[in-house]
Amino acid sequence: MTNGSKALYSVEEVKNEDYKLWDAYVEQHSSGALYHKMAWAKLIERTLSQKPRYFLAKDTSGKVVGVLPLVNLKSVVFGNFLVSMPYFNYGGVLADNTDVSTMLVNAATELADNLNVSHVQFRCSEENMPSDFHLSTHKVNMILDLPESQDALGKSIGSKRRSQIKRPIREGVSHKIGGKELLDDFYDVFCQNMRDLGTPVYSKKLFAEILNTFEANVHICVVYWEGKPVSTGFLMHYKDKLEIPWASTVRYANRISVNMYLYWQILSYAIEEGFKQFDFGRSSIDAGTYKFKKQWGAQPHQCYWYHYVPKGKALPDLSPDNENFGLAIKVWQKLPIGITKLIGPHIVKAIP
């Protein structure tokens, strides 16, 4: 950072009076995502009890020239660290230029040193961080450029997948796309699926808060079979992209390919609503979820997850693939769903 850039710009933690300026900046920035929005700060603090530390950069005239949302996650099991942004696939710095970006990153690393955290993680969609940061590229976001019509989508996926979509239709499935009225059905399927995967579940309160806070940006799709919800997707959109951060199917319904029907209906909805892209979420290359998303025509977009690690610290492995978590996953899979709903939210809030 040059002395000139120090004089031109200033960085500080955001104040209440700057919230509207922050959101206006996110709206106009080409890389701005819904997860950069200011409302997440209070939502995460209120529902997950984790502390937001949001940095704002201004020029000498008071104009916003950059933002960096950070959340300080703490737990006895997973430690103390900072993430931009936790729980989702996007975050990191938004800035007018590299000088501003550098100042925001320096503010984050200075905070990390002061808080004695193990590391800072920046979830970026492009290479834009210091070269001495640890870079993880094992994940990709799977994104589909949507065709102009449902017919064009059907042709693009081929006859085998069209046949898989028809199977649940013959079995009499139906679906609904809506909002808050579908939350209970979504959550029942979500909890069952997460338990079967051995993953702690978020609280229903979190999803209710997201629906309330971003009402215009959120929908839920639920598939029903024999009168019961069996497959579901929690949908969020921003600008011209529709994303599915959470999707779940109960195991017994997999035999009729109900998840193919779920995604067909969601993609058809995305086309009807005029979205240009559909974001299937992140996957590891060649994993089962990667192959499932690829069959719809989705293409991998590299995730650049940078890590600042203070001197004397080591970057912890918090991924589900860590063999240290293997026993915990097996135990979790055997718990009653009621128990997972009760204790899961206290665990998962510290998993980024």
Rank of each mutant, 00 (worst) to 15 (best):
M1C: 02
S5P: 01
K6L: 12
K6P: 00
A7S: 01
A7G: 00
V11K: 08
V14T: 13
V14E: 00
D18R: 07
K20G: 14
L21Y: 07
A24Y: 08
A24M: 10
Q28A: 12
H29W: 07
L34T: 01
Y35R: 05
H36C: 03
W40M: 07
K42D: 13
E45V: 06
E45F: 11
S49N: 14
P52F: 08
Y54Q: 02
L56G: 03
A57H: 00
D59V: 12
K63G: 10
G66Y: 00
V67M: 10
L68P: 08
L70A: 01
L70E: 05
G79A: 09
G79H: 04
F81M: 01
L82N: 05
S84H: 07
N89G: 13
Y90I: 03
Y90P: 00
V93Q: 03
T98H: 05
D99M: 00
A107E: 07
T109Y: 03
L111K: 02
D113G: 09
S118I: 02
V120F: 00
C124D: 06
C124Q: 03
S125Q: 14
E126I: 01
S131D: 13
F133P: 11
F133W: 15
S136G: 02
V140P: 03
M142S: 12
I143K: 07
D151S: 10
K155T: 09
I157T: 01
G158F: 13
R161V: 10
R162N: 12
K166I: 06
R167S: 11
R167K: 15
P168I: 04
I169A: 15
R170T: 15
G172D: 10
S174F: 07
G178Y: 11
G179W: 04
L183D: 05
L183Y: 01
D184C: 04
D184I: 04
D184N: 13
D185Q: 12
D188I: 12
V189S: 02
V189G: 11
R195T: 14
D196R: 09
L197I: 12
G198P: 11
G198Y: 09
S203C: 03
K205M: 11
E209N: 11
L211R: 05
N212D: 15
T213N: 06
E215I: 04
A216K: 15
I220A: 07
Y224Q: 10
G227Q: 10
V230C: 13
T232C: 15
G233D: 10
K239C: 11
K241A: 13
L242F: 13
I244W: 06
S248T: 08
A253Y: 00
N254A: 08
R255T: 14
I256R: 08
I256D: 04
M260G: 05
L262R: 03
Q265C: 14
I266N: 00
Y269I: 14
E272G: 06
E272W: 08
G274C: 12
K276Y: 09
Q277T: 15
F278S: 05
A287I: 00
Q295L: 15
G297M: 07
Q299G: 04
Q299E: 15
Y304D: 06
G312Q: 04
G312N: 04
K313F: 03
A314S: 14
L318Y: 03
L327K: 13
A328C: 02
G338M: 08
I339S: 05
T340A: 04
P345H: 10
H346C: 02
I347N: 03
A350K: 05
P352G: 06
P352T: 06
